[in-house]
Design a protein around this nucleic acid. Structure first.
Lengths: 169, 169
DNA sequence: GCAGGATAGTTGAAAGCTCAATGCTGTCCC
DNA sequence: GGGACAGCATTGAGCTTTCAACTATCCTGC
């Protein structure tokens, strides 16, 4: 037993890992519940709307939108279908590349996002930032960037895309 | 516009938040994919098996198991049903309290966990700890504990439950 | 200019999760 | 002791995500 020793987790790492799993699970659940309850939007869909709202023309190609939201193409495609059914997003085909599809945030979509945003921001504050010191906020950012910049990273979030208003997450 | 000012996110917080969402989404996806691909077990189920394996008698009451895994009772009930169908867990009714149900990890369940663990640990290292300094590991632990110890926290993970082997996450 | 391979996006089926409703059992208190 | 209420667990319906095809378009080299 304990034969091949492929490096087990040390006790510091184990403690960090258990805390992380618990905290991220709880945080995600809290945010998702809040959004679903108060606005009928799951967190994943909120992110799609938010990313679209930040972009010139409120339009993005499906694959770029998938990259920005850390989503698989399949998931995004299903999600956009449902958002389209709600009238929050519409699809047009890409002029340059006929394989492509553009997703555009509609006015109704922007309105839905604007309605949902304040409650969401409040929840993020309440469950995360209100419990951290300024120093910890910076540490968290650096830790997450280190995780993202590994060998096989996808899209690193822009340095501070601090949009005007209907954004976040 | 910008009327009621319920405190928006500052640019430090925004940067931290965007990085966090991206990193946690990617990390969870990577771990889930690895476990599913190599062992046919989703991460949530792995956690259930792991928690049971750490406990005397490899047995826990459903509600305690739900608390330890940050899971709703409903989710846990569905999950244990499926694990039971696999022969990895079995249910018995609680002797003291006839409302209760005990979930016990079977030998097959322990074997499945032991088979899945090394790959999982490797993935956790690769995607998380190999990218952080020791200092950051400590910071991450403290940040997550701060998040967990808010007003409405559930179960804070034990200080260092560093079990013998078939554990983690 | 066309075969071969890569890229973009969609779809359907199966699996998992959430929510609300339900059925028992225990506890409190008159 | 019996009614009201809280707690434990399960269930089913509906929604989201994943995985594995599948179609259509673009690019590369010949």
């Amino acid at each position: 037993m304990d034969g091949d020793e492929d490096r087990w987790l040390g006790s510091d790492e184990l403690a960090a890992w258990l805390s992380y799993v618990a905290a991220s699970t709880l945080l995600e659940a809290a945010l998702d519940r809040q959004l679903q309850r108060d606005s009928g939007i799951p967190h994943a869909y909120y992110q799609i709307l938010a990313m679209l709202s930040e972009v010139p023309g409120r339009t993005l190609r499906m694959s770029d939108l998938a990259a920005v939201t850390q989503s698989s193409q399949s998931r995004l495609s299903h999600a956009v279908s449902r958002l389209e059914r709600h009238g929050w997003v519409c699809r047009t085909s890409c002029p340059n590349d006929r394989r492509g599809t553009l997703a555009q945030l509609t006015d109704e979509g922007l309105a839905a996002l604007a309605a949902a945003a304040p409650g969401h921001v409040r929840a993020v504050r309440e469950h995360l930032f209100d419990r951290l010191t300024c120093e910890q906020v910076g540490q968290l950012r650096d830790i997450c960037r280190a995780v993202l910049s590994g060998p096989a990273q996808h899209v690193t979030p822009p340095d501070t895309p601090a949009g005007h208003h209907g954004s976040m997450s």
